[in-house]
Design a protein around this nucleic acid. Structure first.
Length: 426
RNA sequence: GGAGAGGUAGCGAAGCGGCCAUAACGCGCCCGACUCGAAAUCGGGUUGCCCCGGAGACGGGGCACGUGGGUUCGAAUCCCACCCUCUCCGCCA
């Protein structure tokens, strides 16, 4: 949620921002709603003031044994009017709130303008792109051929966009999770194993609700949802709390399954394991001092990139333009790994500084030394999803004989296995 | 799932229709005194949000006792629903 005062005092700035984001929210509508809210509030508060003082008088008179029935009758009528007006004022307040909850975060000044992914700006390119002396296969085909991906049985169990990882692939996923978590622990992240189901308050805190409910898997008959990313439980860990300012920045990581309805993704990325309803991801979340958060974003992006370097996977980093950024983010770097079969860079990590946007929604504050509690800044980044990492490993490590050479750094995690060989028997 | 107890300031906790919400009392924290310094002791201070006014230190008002309703002139206090925590029972990896 953006700052109410900013909208009130500088509506033109917000209007410009919303235009940059290609978002069709009308700021004028807010000004009308807010004006009405304030007028009703002033009116009902004046009435409540009268009621409060008069009720005190009733008490005083009763103590002296005086008759107060006439006064009570009069106040009863006032109470009726307060009830009605209070309802109206409450609705006006809810209208303003609802409007605010659908406004995205304000892009940082360093974010390039632009409408979609074609206008993102490349900032880093790393690694040598391998030249193949054969035509590189797609990861989905490699995974199936090597007996690691079973799409058919998964879809029989659950539907489309699910996969069963089998044998070496299941183990590779575990290896990656452990490798990632070990790296994060070395970088000072505290590992959390959170609930994979959260309530609507948590989803609202990070910005999935109220606007993006159709992207979530909801539990029938309950105000609960499957998490689309560990960002949700991690960022909401300290919801409603005031943290000690001396302890910032704080860093947390978590390996969880992620569940996404992928509504509106029909026909997109249908091959392989790039876009699944369920996938495993290690997530990084940082809580930072407002003046330090953009520096923290660089640090976190560095952590994501380092993982790819250790895995010997070529990548590039782009700064997302305003029109391509997520709802809660003020600045996002996408890290894109090289997939040789299609000769494209595909998003593998998204690192965002959400500034105080989520902190305000989830009410996460910190107390500076000797100061008042203020909203802190939240950041999140993938570090990394296992599925897309496996895809990159398979495509980049494939050999002419159909086998796949694993990155050296994973060999200890794979009990010494260096190469995935085609199965002798299916 | 059943029974009971409970949710009040940073923490513990009192209050159980108006005289108790800038919320008793205790702890913590901040300032000061004493001290070479510290501990101990003593004195003072210490909730948040919203609206109106003010350039501002501030002033006026409202709201908040888990959440949402209800009863009442008036609700932390009475009633209803829901959420959460603890204890016991049941079930269970």
């Amino acid at each position: 949620m953006i700052d109410l005062k900013l909208v009130q005092k500088q509506p033109h700035i917000l209007a410009g921002v919303l235009a940059d984001r290609h978002c069709d929210i009308d700021v004028g509508e807010f000004l009308v709603l807010d004006k009405r809210r304030r007028a009703l509030l002033a009116e009902v508060e004046a009435m409540k003031n009268r009621r409060n003082t008069a009720s005190g008088q009733v008490a005083a008179l009763k103590r002296e044994g005086e008759d107060t029935t006439a006064m009570q009758a009069e106040l009863g009528a006032l109470a009726e009017r307060i009830r009605a007006l209070d309802m109206e004022a409450g609705q006006a307040r809810a209208d303003v709130e609802a409007w605010l909850m659908r406004v995205p975060n304000i892009p940082d000044g360093s974010v390039p303008k632009g409408k979609d992914e074609t206008e993102n700006v490349e900032v880093v390119r790393w690694g040598e792109i391998r030249v193949f002396d054969f035509s590189p296969a797609e990861h989905g085909d490699i995974g199936v051929r090597l007996g690691g991906f079973d799409f058919e049985r998964a879809s029989r169990l659950a539907g489309s966009r699910f996969v069963c990882l089998r044998g070496w692939a299941a183990k590779l996923e575990r290896a990656l999770v452990n490798f990632f978590l070990d790296q994060h622990a070395a970088n000072g992240y505290i590992e959390i194993n959170p609930p994979f189901i959260v309530n609507s308050a948590a989803m609202t805190g990070t910005g999935q609700l109220p606007k993006f409910e159709e992207d979530l898997f909801a539990l029938r008959g309950r105000e609960q949802y499957l998490i689309p990313t560990a960002e949700v439980p991690l960022t909401n860990l300290y919801a409603g709390e005031v943290l000690d300012g001396e302890l910032l920045p704080r860093a947390f990581c978590s390996a969880t399954p992620c569940f996404r309805a992928e509504a509106g993704a029909a026909g997109k990325d249908t091959r392989g394991i790039i876009r699944m309803h369920q996938f495993t991801k290690v997530e990084m979340v940082r809580f930072a001092h407002p003046e330090d958060s953009f520096n923290q974003l660089e640090i976190m992006r560095g952590h994501a990139c380092r993982l790819l370097e250790l895995l010997e996977l070529p990548y590039r980093v782009v700064t997302l333009c305003a029109g391509d950024m997520g709802f809660s983010s003020a600045k996002t770097y996408d890290v894109e790994v090289w997939l040789p079969a299609q000769a494209v860079h595909r998003e593998i990590s998204s690192c965002s500084n959400c500034t105080d946007f989520q902190a305000r929604r989830a009410n996460i504050r910190f107390k500076p030394r000797g100061g008042k509690a203020v909203f802190l800044h939240t950041l999140n980044g993938s570090g990394l999803p296992t599925g897309r990492t496996i895809a990159a490993i398979l495509e980049n490590g494939q050999q002419k004989d159909g086998s796949v050479r694993l990155p050296k750094v994973l060999i200890p995690y794979m009990d010494g296995v260096e190469v995935i060989e085609p199965p002798k028997q299916p």
